[in-house]
């Protein structure tokens, strides 16, 4: 555990809680991609199956349970509780174009050809692209609520902090996991355009809207 990893995890947790609170307080999931949230629920489910087989630490187990619980709570709010406010027409990204290639890649390129390990690899690859339906939705509607941009910023920050964590672990522990690193870098790159808009618009008090 190092400071980058801890702040990365906390940033991830903040993102998840910001999204839940936004939906709960406004009683609306307008502008939120239900498809991205389903993908994140799949990501956590397939990655954290080791909760049942391997104990790493109390911190590790607690965070996993919280992440999974929040992911399903978010999906429940979008598709059940506040379904009437879900903007399905704008959430038109074809997720099969992500899930199918990612599944194929996980079978082909992994650390170990075992059931659990292929699911872990699948979750790593899927997480790297799971935000695409959300970014697609924003590009389609041309705008995002400020609270949604805070959510996205925390989520992107978490990935960036994990990269610093891997640099740290490489130098001080000799540890590196190429699959996680490549997928993590890809994921962080996807946020770059958004980071630029966040810094130039949202932090200056403007709403995030894209030029037509």
């Amino acid at each position: 555990m190092n400071i980058f990893r801890l702040t990365g995890d906390l940033s991830h947790l903040a993102a998840i809680i910001i999204l839940l609170l936004k939906i709960w307080k406004s009683r609306s999931c307008a502008g939120i991609s239900g498809k991205s949230q389903i993908l994140f629920a799949i990501v956590f489910t397939t990655r954290y199956l080791d909760l049942l087989s391997t104990f790493i630490s109390l911190y590790n187990s607690c965070m996993k349970v919280i992440y999974i619980g929040c992911a399903y709570a978010t999906v429940y709010m979008i598709y059940m509780k506040f379904r009437a406010t879900y903007d399905g027409n704008h959430d038109s990204f074809r997720v099969e174009f992500l899930v199918v290639p990612v599944g194929g890649l996980a079978v082909l390129i992994n650390h170990d050809f075992s059931f659990m390990e292929i699911l872990w690899t699948f979750s790593i690859y899927l997480e790297s692209v799971a935000i695409l339906p959300q970014l697609f939705m924003i590009s389609k509607t041309g705008e995002a609520e400020t609270i949604t941009t805070h959510y996205l910023f925390c989520l992107g920050l978490y990935r960036a902090l994990y990269i610093f964590n891997w640099v740290w672990r490489f130098y001080f522990e000799g540890f590196f996991d190429l699959i996680a690193i490549v997928a993590g870098v890809v994921q962080t790159i996807l946020y770059c355009d958004f980071f630029y808009l966040y810094v130039t618009k949202v932090l200056k008090g403007k709403k995030l809207s894209l030029p037509a």
């Binding site: 990893r5 080791d50 391997t54 590790n60 965070m63 170990d112 390990e117 996991d177």
Partner: peptide, 10 residues
């Protein structure tokens, strides 16, 4: 050879 030891990150 790659010795696989599991994953400790979230």
């Amino acid at each position: 050879a790659m010795s696989f030891e599991g994953h400790d990150e979230l």
